[in-house]
Structure formats: C-alpha cells, structure tokens
Design a protein around this nucleic acid. Structure first.
Length: 261
DNA sequence: AGTACCACCTGACGGC
DNA sequence: TGCCGTCAGGTGGTAC
C-alpha cells in the first residue's frame, strides 16, 4: 500500500497515539525487516519516549527523546496499529512497542518487504540510503533539473526514489494521467512546460490524496485511481483505459488522453 | 554512471 | 473443493 500519502497518514496516526509516552518494552521477531539488531533496538527504545515524527518520501522517522530516530519503511504491505486489548492485536506484527499506559503500537507487515532501522540523523540516513528530496516539498526548479537530466522513461524516473522520493506505482499513474503524458515517454522528450505541468499536478494529487486519508475510494471520480482497471472508460474523455508494463510494473493509462510523443 | 530486471515474501483471486 | 499460476500501491542487488 504505502506511498507518500499513506505514510503521511501513518505519521498523523503515530502523532495522535504514540508521542510522549514512556516505552516499557520492545518485542521483535526474527524477521528480515530489521536493519538494526534486536538488542540495539531494545537499548535505544526501552525507557525512552517518542518526541515527534518526520517523514521523507516513504520513510517515517520517529525521534526518540535524546536518542536518535526509529526509522520505519512499510514496503508493500506495512501499516501501524495502536491498541490495548489482546483481541485487537493484529497478525503479522514485526515490532511491538508497549507503553507504560497499557497500550501497544504495532508495526505490522505481512510480506516483510519493509524496513526497521535506527538513525542518528535524518539527512545522513537519506544520503546513505540514496533517498532523494521529498516529492511533496521539492522545489520546482530542482524538479525540472532532475528530470531534464534523466534518460529513463518518465514513469520509471518518477518512481526512482533516488531522484525524488515518495511516489509509487499508483500515484505515478495518477499524476501522468492528469498531466496527459504517456508513461513511456522518455524524460528527454519532455519540454520544460510539460515538466512544469507534471510538477503542478503532482502537488495537487498528493494534497488531495492526503486530505482524503490516502483512500483511493474517496478520491474524486474523475481521477484515474477509482477507474484503474483495463477496459474501463476514461472519466474525462470516455476513451479506453489500457494496461501495459513499464519498468516491470503494471501501468494504466488512457489511450486517447495520453498520447505518445 | 545510469538503467533495467529479477529476487525477496506472503496471500488473494481466477481458471481449470 | 483444490491446485496452480499470476498478481499485488516496494526496493536492493546485480547484470548490461
């Protein structure tokens, strides 16, 4: 699930539930999601509390009071759940934080494609992990510079987290749909006006998604997402929605709104 | 150096 | 019903 808007919703959820509470205990599983050892996680977290959170792209950073950051990445199937009663406990928990108030915060990840790590500094973490500027806050001129240099297809390039971070498969499709640009267009074939259009649309789509709790079902009906299935009608022009593969990912677009160059 | 592709996990769904 | 192949909103390593 999680792309930038989803992680932003997780951040709000984290802020509303888990800040400023004493951490009693950390429980880990032997899963591959850990980049830091179980012992290090316990030492860094137990007896401390979370102060505030930050997000860069699809990464959530929870600041541990005077002790660096807990870093969460959600992969395809990650989420968080705050709960108290045993019967509310979700399956597939990879990290369980118990607070002294009797509540728990669970990092849940069915497919285990996510990541749990610790970091001293957000900037260094991003540098070391090749995470580009956040798609929601990258300045326009930086955006233009990055994508006019790329020689990949625009869809692959938008999804490349080292260029800008936060966009995944479905929001990239949405952005290109609303920008009326074919996903296989080479970045080099895009003019500055088209890159500007993508930039503007990107902000509008991300803001709209966040305002709607990152729930595709709540998006406006003229968005691609509620209509994202092969053979459906384009909500704008009644053309046909087509499915292709771009960079190994399923890609949906309108064959009449999004013409190739 | 920059791009492309597959492996990594697990579950859901559709076809036979 | 049951088995099998395919697909899923991500990314790291590796091969061009």
């Amino acid at each position: 699930m999680p792309e930038l808007p989803d992680v932003e919703i997780f951040k709000k959820y984290f802020d509303a539930t888990s800040l400023h509470q004493n951490i009693r205990e950390i429980k880990t599983t032997g899963s591959r999601v850990y980049k830091s050892s179980s012992k290090t996680l316990k030492n860094s977290l137990e007896g401390h509390s979370f102060d505030h959170t930050s997000r860069v792209g699809k990464y959530l950073f929870a600041q541990i009071k005077s002790n660096g950051f807990l870093v969460l990445h959600f992969g395809m199937t990650g989420e968080m759940k705050y709960f108290k009663k045993e019967e509310e406990k979700p399956d597939y928990i990879q990290l369980l934080v118990s607070f002294t108030n009797g509540y728990y915060l669970a990092y849940v990840n069915k497919r285990k494609l996510g990541k749990i790590d610790l970091a001293e500094c957000i900037d260094d973490f991003c540098k070391n992990n090749n995470i580009g500027p956040d798609a929601g806050s990258v300045p326009g001129d930086t955006f233009i510079e990055i994508f006019s240099k790329s020689r990949a297809m625009i869809k692959s390039s938008l999804m490349d987290q080292s260029q800008i971070s936060g966009l995944g498969n479905i929001y990239t499709d949405e952005i290109l749909y609303q920008s009326q640009i074919h996903p296989e267009t080479g970045c080099g074939d895009l003019g500055e006006d088209e890159l500007n259009r993508i930039y503007t649309v990107m902000h509008r789509v991300l803001d709209t998604a966040i305002r709607n709790d990152a729930d595709p079902a709540k998006l406006p009906q003229d968005y691609l997402l509620p209509n994202r299935a092969e053979g459906n009608k384009c909500p704008k022009c009644k053309g046909k929605i087509k499915k292709i593969r771009v960079g190994g990912r399923s890609t949906y677009y309108c064959e009449s709104c999004q013409k190739k160059h």
